[in-house]
């Protein structure tokens, strides 16, 4: 049974099993709800394009955050600063690369027309 027991003995700050189980369930439910919202925004065909895109984007980002929070247990507090540095830096670079590529290639395509 090894060191798993020791953790709980010495810890105490560990979340209980029931808490953690409900965390996964909450994450699952949140994901389902957000997916349904995004799907409805598209298939209902009542929203203008820009609103549908915005809804999908917001629902997608919220779902990613929800999974980071409830599945991967990433919190803004009580976490070593260096780990959040890593995640934030990744997001920064991701935005630069993806956004930059779409900007540059969009500009080039527009001028090719």
């Amino acid at each position: 049974m090894s060191h798993m027991d020791k953790i709980d003995e010495s810890g105490g700050q560990m979340e209980s099993r029931a808490d953690e189980r409900s965390s996964y369930l909450r994450g699952g439910i949140a994901s389902v709800v957000l997916t349904v919202i995004a799907v409805l925004a598209v298939v209902s065909d009542v929203l203008p394009d820009w609103a549908a895109w915005t809804t999908i984007a917001v629902a997608g980002i919220l779902q990613a955050v929800a999974q980071l929070h409830w599945f991967l247990h990433i919190r803004l507090h009580g976490q070593a600063w260096e780990d959040l540095q890593l995640i934030f830096f990744t997001i920064l670079i991701l935005v630069l690369m993806v956004g930059g590529t779409i900007w540059v290639m969009g500009d080039l395509t527009a001028r090719m027309m």
Partner: peptide
């Protein structure tokens, strides 16, 4: 260093502003 990559292809045809 992540903000300057376009200078390797200034002549590829993107707009002057970029």
């Amino acid at each position: 260093s992540f903000l300057v990559w376009v200078h390797h292809f200034f002549t590829m045809g993107q707009s002057a502003g970029m």
